[in-house]
């Protein structure tokens, strides 16, 4: 399966299993979603279980919160993460705080799915990576898969989780892995082992990172599309990097990170989102706090620039393998800038 089919499979399986699971969003009903993730859900499970909503991100998330309080398990789609901001108040002030502020009387077991990330010439409002706006909020979980197997398993786990989950889907990876070498033809998912996706139910636990490449020189912390870019960057640099796909940003698998950095003594963090106050800053601070005496070089960060996401400058903006390689070489030589 490609990532779209894997996500779609997770929804079909959970909806077949649990009548309290609903899926809705803009164009997510009859049409099956602009990216096809909700394809055939309505036809298979019925009009009241998978339906189209008005173009109101705030309204559809609010409705999901009300449904969650009633006892349902709604999975909503925000067509692009760039359009999640109208729902920010509902997510941050309501869903995230409901269990806490009500002393556990009310909960918000909702999943907010949204395609995110760049590398598709999406310009300013079809490319953003807003994860740090959610990792900063107590009460939210933030999940980002990087391959079809994890996408299905993590989405299934997110639907079953009792807390609100922001589930960001790297749309650049929907149809195939992308390592940032944009001039090369893109290969489909089927060549990858992670495209072997069981048709039945399984979960990938929330809160567990995956070591996707073992190495001894430097630890790369990354997620989403940047997992593939980081692998390519390590190869380009000829550095024996240990690549960790975080998979879940909150709660973070700190044990895996700590063990790896203590082993390698070096760390590079890679994300598409702008650098300033990006999630990389948090990761860097955690590594510094916990691995200080094991570090042999300053922690490196490769991120999007502190600009809005541009259109014409796609490949100057998008952190590609060459930038990752440069950062790896820098930390291997003591972090000289």
């Amino acid at each position: 399966m490609n990532m779209i089919q894997a996500l779609n499979s997770a929804l079909h399986v959970k909806m077949a299993e649990d009548p309290n699971v609903l899926s809705f969003g803009e164009d997510a009903g009859y049409f099956g979603g602009v990216f096809r993730v909700t394809d055939q859900l309505q036809q298979k499970h019925g009009l009241t279980r998978s339906f189209d909503t008005p173009i109101s991100e705030c309204g559809l998330v609010a409705a999901a919160i009300g449904m969650g309080a009633y006892g349902l398990r709604p999975v909503v789609e925000i067509q692009f993460a760039d359009y999640i901001y109208p729902a920010y108040d509902q997510i941050v002030s309501e869903a995230a705080k409901m269990r806490y502020r009500s002393g556990g009387q009310f909960t918000s077991p909702i999943v907010v799915r949204s395609p995110y990330g760049g590398g598709i010439f999406g310009g300013q409002t079809h490319s953003q990576s807003p994860e740090s706006l959610f990792t900063h909020i107590a009460g939210l979980k933030v999940v980002i898969p990087s391959n079809p197997y994890d996408a299905k398993g993590l989405l299934t786990a997110s639907i079953e989780d009792g807390d609100p989950v922001i589930f960001l889907e790297p749309k650049r990876l929907y149809n195939g892995p992308f390592d940032g070498w944009h001039q090369k033809p893109v290969s489909p998912w089927k060549a990858q082992p992670s495209a072997q996706v069981p048709t039945g139910k399984y979960t990938v636990p929330i809160g567990e990172a995956a070591v996707v490449r073992e190495g001894s020189d430097v630890t790369i912390l990354c997620y989403g599309t940047m997992v593939w870019v980081s692998l390519a960057g390590a190869e380009h640099a000829g550095v024996d990097a240990e690549v960790i796909d975080l998979r879940t940003l909150v709660p973070l698998d700190i044990a895996t990170i700590e063990a790896s950095v203590k082993k390698t003594g070096r760390c590079v963090i890679v994300h598409e989102a702008p650098k300033t106050s990006g999630y990389g800053a948090e990761l860097s601070a955690l590594v510094q706090e916990r691995c200080f005496y094991h570090l042999e070089a300053p922690i490196g960060r490769v991120a999007g620039w502190d600009t809005p996401y541009p259109h014409a400058f796609e490949w100057e903006y998008f952190p590609g393998p060459e930038r990752v390689a440069a950062a790896l070489k820098a930390v291997m030589t003591g972090g000289a800038r």
């Binding site: 609903l22 509902q90 309501e94 409901m98």
Partner: peptide, 25 residues
């Protein structure tokens, strides 16, 4: 009596969602 929020208006579309859930079930 649903948990009160300091953020004004947020509970009204939530009530609609709760009602939709009741109708759905």
């Amino acid at each position: 009596f649903f948990t009160i929020s300091g953020n004004l208006g947020t509970q009204v579309p939530q009530a609609v969602g709760w009602a939709m859930a009741s109708a759905y079930k």
